[in-house]
Write a protein that binds this DNA or RNA. Structure first.
Length: 997
RNA sequence: GCCCCCGUGGCGGAACGGCAGACGCUACGGACUUAAAAUCCGUUGGCCCGCAAGGGCCGUGUGGGUUCGAAUCCCACCGGGGGCACCA
């Protein structure tokens, strides 16, 4: 008779809520308890409700939280809603419901589902990012960024007032591009003799220039950047949402157009975001993803002078194009390279099509072709450019640059394989030693000069002829590297490079940089792939910016006292059809008068990620009306000790919130440089394994070996598998098979009805269109929350990707029923519930096992190895089942150990064992070291590494006697007789290995 | 193309360089039942010898290596998954 999980689970969920069993104590309430901040990535409450992936991570942190509470920790374990975002808004537009309404309903559903799992959240700390009381502080943090700059001296954020001081004191100066840098001469710029002065002092600027410098340094700033604008949808789209120049949704054309957008200066933090990864206890692959995303490259900036387009044309001639600078300014292009050692091999230069210098240096004869090419590039989105990456395109612009190391005139091209957004938007092309340059040079018949000698293996592999003679290989490479199959991009020895000949690549790089710095034609430089974060969206359902714009479009901060800037409750939140955000239609809201002047509000909103950048701080002090978080509480709780969530946020949320946190740290609002000390990624739960046979249109099955290009294809009703016949190329359709139609033979699955035919077996990501989504509601209804929790934790390692298998759930259900039967016994409906617990000592063997289990379960919970912890509990329960009655201490300790995993049934058993208080804060059982060992031990004995017998010896026996016992063991004789024992190995308490020969 | 992770029974998965397959599922056999389901008990990597008790051989994607000893460490290859992708 199964226990009644429905009643029991409802009862205890209500009990926990009423008693606030999981309330996190304030710092002064728990002066002696160690703190633990255990956090889940809070969900976006979508309309679909919870899927089985959510409870995986939530149960894991719940087990850890419950365990730590039982170990006397003061645990902060909160839950909230990341509720701003596009899906609610799309749904709202389609169905004409206000997004606030859908969001409210979705949160309700999520909350009900999460509560039904019995998770030990402190519900008094629930937060919702769309609540004005929450987003006032999101806006407040934005204002801190708006009012801060990144100080180049101390490499940290500081209030903007400090910037003005430093400029006035001339510790900082202004560069020609308006950037701020450290004053290169402490005495003043006039000291740089004979040089063209590029930096300017604060006092040399006009007030308007001064304001521009300030605005240009803010961590939150406005800038004109090219975006994907889709007039059909009336919004900008991310690159991922654009396919073949059309919108993914609706197929409307998309244009690239520059728009004035809010940006956050995350690039200033690139180095710290990179370096501090080393201090974090995060999965290495995830750190690697962030490292790649930041993409730090070391190399050099090299300046190339621009030569006149023709020997006979002077720089002042009209052929230079506009503006005419009178010949007084040197025209030069700076390139970034990671291989300065290949500078002698630079045979041409490539600029990004959008490079600003192109207009100035293209002679009139080439204007038309250049413009045509630029238009062609602009019409294509970044994504298309990547898709067509195989074929190199570009045009010669009619100008030349001078290679600074050898004075060679090299032609300048524009090509879209050079990106304006990376490095300087210009490269020196070294076709012999760069794949892309190699391809481009071959297509445009440009010279290829070898300047690095590859090793012989490479030469032999890539040579155009099968010659094996090393000398002729090397000669051939020097004479004609273009005839080889590809460019040599590895490290070798410098050749054809007078300044560095004979040097291995690393030294050659260093020497070349030194030379460039001596000649003042270049310097050491570091570049990042990371770009500043485009932070504004033309949407309704997001946080409004706390920004006013004056008549010139200059941004002014809203006073802190006027926060929050609430989202106006408009009826019309649909896109305007122009780049104007929907909020611009809220005319009353938009116009603001302040101090006698009229302003308009910024009508863009913040992106989905804003609210999640700092929510972990608000959980610490969710009801504070005066600060975003109280500093005393912040110091107590931070950092987050354990953070669990999916890997999909690796370079989004997890990078963004580290960045915000560092800004807050620099401004001394938080006490730790990093927010999340330990992070664990839960693996994806896939749908049940599916079997497909591929068939021709006539229904003829084709074996998997004769099939190629297996893929998925969307249909009106869902998704199907498709493939092509390897020989005929005919299209094949996958037919889903029932499990019993399939059998495993050898290394694959075959049709039971026709073993000739091999079939496809795999699991897919759960998706609505595939129809393989499992709803947690059903599982909880059929088996109960405790069984559901156990099943998800027992599936395998938390981090691993693993397929769902409903059939397996019954195992956990049986386990809990068996526990119930063992400790409680027969009828749980009895008026005075009895138990099978008796006051008797635990039998020795079982006592040892119990102590081993306590040790193992405790270690496994800390190490997040829940599957093996549960296996251990099952084993102990199986042993308990063999007893006529359960000794009370065993029943109690077992129940306490089970509690973090299956809290409802554990509480119920605990109560029936005669306790009138929840076990939530009852001490977790402790194990006795002395009970872990036996007086005798069993040792395996190997001969030549193969197991041949086992011996039983005293636990404290010495090595000599153990070896004596081992060599004389009965099962060993036949293997050593007539042979000499060459070596005896005894691994203490592990095994004996005899080497004979 | 580059980077990262992973290949163990019919399935999910255990195993500080030291007894491979813990634990669960499935399947099979048995008990209970008029019967079925549910439940409970037993067996369950493959091959071979033996009536049996028992014993032997082979086995962690493939091939090599290090080691007294390798699923575990190293090299190469094959297969799967993920990330980045014209990043100079």
């Amino acid at each position: 008779m199964p226990y009644n999980f429905t009643t029991i689970e409802k009862k205890w969920q209500q009990y926990w809520l009423e008693h606030k069993s999981f309330r996190a104590l304030e710092p002064d309430e728990a002066p002696d308890a160690p703190k633990a901040y255990v956090l889940d990535m809070f969900p976006y409450p979508s309309g679909a409700g919870l899927h089985v992936g959510h409870p995986e991570g939530y149960t894991a942190t719940d087990i850890v939280s419950r365990y730590l509470r039982m170990r006397g920790h003061n645990v902060l374990h909160p839950m909230g809603w990341d509720a701003f975002g596009l899906p609610a808004e799309q749904y709202a537009i389609k169905n004409n419901v206000h997004p606030a309404e859908t969001t409210r309903k979705n949160i309700e559903t999520f909350k009900r589902q999460i509560r039904m799992l019995g998770l030990s959240y402190d519900w008094d700390r629930e937060i919702d990012t769309t609540d004005p009381e929450y987003y006032r502080w999101t806006q407040w943090i934005f204002l801190q960024m708006f009012n801060s700059y990144f100080d180049p001296i101390d490499q940290k954020a500081k209030p903007i007032g400090h910037l003005i001081n430093e400029l006035q004191n001339e510790n900082l100066v202004v560069g020609p591009d308006g950037s701020v840098r450290i004053n290169p001469t402490q005495e003043g710029l006039e000291e740089i003799a004979g040089e063209v002065r590029v930096e300017r002092l604060w006092r040399e600027l006009t007030p308007i220039e001064q304001q521009d410098v300030i605005d240009g340094q803010r961590l939150a700033y406005m800038d004109e950047v090219p975006v994907n604008w889709c007039p059909g949808l009336g919004t900008v789209l991310a690159n991922e949402e654009v396919i073949d120049g059309k919108s993914e949704v609706g197929g409307y054309p998309v244009e690239r157009r520059p728009m004035r957008q809010w940006m956050l200066r995350i690039t200033a933090y690139a180095d710290r975001l990179l370096n501090d990864l080393d201090t974090l206890d995060w999965p290495e692959p995830l750190k690697e993803m962030q490292r790649n995303w930041i993409g730090r490259s070391e190399g050099a900036h090299v300046d190339f002078e621009i030569a006149p387009p023709d020997e006979n044309v002077r720089r002042t001639d009209a052929a230079w194009g506009e503006p005419n600078d009178g010949g007084n300014v040197d025209l030069s292009v700076t390139v970034f390279t990671t291989r300065p050692d290949t500078l002698y091999g630079a045979t041409y230069m490539v600029l990004a099509p959008e490079h600003p210098l192109v207009d100035r240096i293209t002679p009139s004869a080439h204007r038309e072709t250049v413009e045509a090419y630029r238009t062609q590039c602009a019409a294509r989105s970044e994504r298309d450019r990547m898709a067509e990456a195989k074929e190199k395109t570009g045009v010669f612009i009619g100008a030349y640059a001078i290679n600074p190391v050898n004075g060679e005139r090299i032609p300048i091209y524009i090509a879209d394989y050079v990106l304006m957004g990376y490095g300087t938007g210009a490269i020196m092309a070294v076709p012999a030693h760069d794949e892309r340059d190699f391809e481009f040079a071959k297509k445009f018949k440009l010279p290829i000069i070898a300047v690095v000698m590859p090793d012989e293996t490479w030469l032999r592999a890539e040579a155009p002829f099968p010659d094996a003679d090393p000398i002729s290989l090397a000669t051939a490479y020097v004479e004609n590297p273009g005839s080889f199959k590809k460019a040599f991009t590895g490290v070798g020895v410098a050749i054809n490079s007078p300044a560095i000949n004979g040097l291995p690549t690393p030294q050659a790089k260093a020497r070349m940089i030194d030379k460039l710095e001596e000649d003042e034609t270049g310097h050491r430089a570091i570049t990042y792939k990371l770009r500043d974060w485009l932070f504004s969206r033309q949407r309704y359902w997001g946080e409004p910016f706390p920004i006013l714009l004056d008549s010139e479009g200059n941004a002014v901060a809203v006073h802190e006292a006027d926060l929050p800037v609430t989202l106006p409750a408009v009826a019309d939140f649909k896109p305007t059809g122009t780049p104007e955000p929907p909020l611009s239609k809220a005319t009353e809201w938009v116009t603001v008068s302040r101090e006698g002047r009229t302003f308009t509000r910024e009508t863009n909103t913040m992106p989905q990620w804003a609210g999640s950048c700092w929510y972990y701080l608000r959980f610490i002090d969710p009801h504070n009306k005066h600060r975003f978080v109280d500093p005393v509480k912040e110091r107590y709780w931070m950092p987050v000790d354990l953070y669990v969530g999916g890997v999909e946020h690796a370079v989004l949320h997890l990078l963004y919130s580290r960045f915000w946190h560092k800004v807050l740290f620099d401004l001394e609002y938080v006490s730790t440089p990093e927010p999340f000390q330990r992070l664990v990624n839960q693996g994806l739960i896939l749908g049940e394994t599916e079997y497909h046979v591929f068939e021709t249109e006539q229904g003829q099955p084709v074996s998997l070996g004769d099939v190629r290009d297996v893929d998925e294809e969307a249909t009106e009703t869902g998704v199907r598998m498709v493939a092509h016949d390897r020989r005929t190329g005919a299209k094949l359709i996958g037919r889903r098979l029932k499990e019993e139609e399939v059998e495993k033979v050898g290394d694959g699955y075959r049709l039971r009805s026709n073993p000739e035919i091999r079939v496809d077996a795999r699991s897919f990501k759960m998706s609505k269109s595939r129809g393989n989504v499992v709803n947690p509601d059903t599982i909880v209804q059929d088996y109960g929350a405790d069984t559901f929790r156990l099943y998800e934790m027992y599936m395998g390692p938390l981090e691993a990707q693993k397929p769902w298998n409903t059939r397996d759930i019954v195992g956990m259900s049986r386990f809990l029923n068996s526990v119930w039967r063992n400790i409680i016994g027969g009828d749980e409906e009895a008026p005075v519930p009895g138990t099978r617990a008796v006051d008797a000592p635990i039998p020795d063997a079982l006592d040892r096992q119990m102590h081993r289990t306590i040790k193992k379960v405790a270690e496994d919970i800390t190490g997040m190895r829940f599957n093996t912890a549960i296996a251990e509990l099952i084993k102990l329960n199986n042993e308990m089942g063999k007893l006529p009655a359960i000794p009370r201490p065993l029943a109690e300790d077992f129940t306490l150990m089970l509690a973090p995993f299956a809290p409802h049934i554990a509480e119920e058993i605990w109560q029936r064992l005669g306790h009138d208080r929840s076990l939530a804060r009852h001490p977790f059982p402790a194990y006795d070291e002395a009970k872990l060992t036996k007086s005798t031990m069993e040792l395996p004995v190997q001969v030549n590494g193969k197991l041949r017998d086992k011996i039983t010896v005293a636990a404290d026996a010495d090595e000599a006697s153990i070896l004596r016992t081992a060599t004389s063991a009965p099962g060993i004789q036949q293997w050593v007789n007539g042979k000499s024992i060459k070596k005896q190995i005894y691994v203490p308490k592990k095994l004996v290995n005899l080497v004979v020969g």
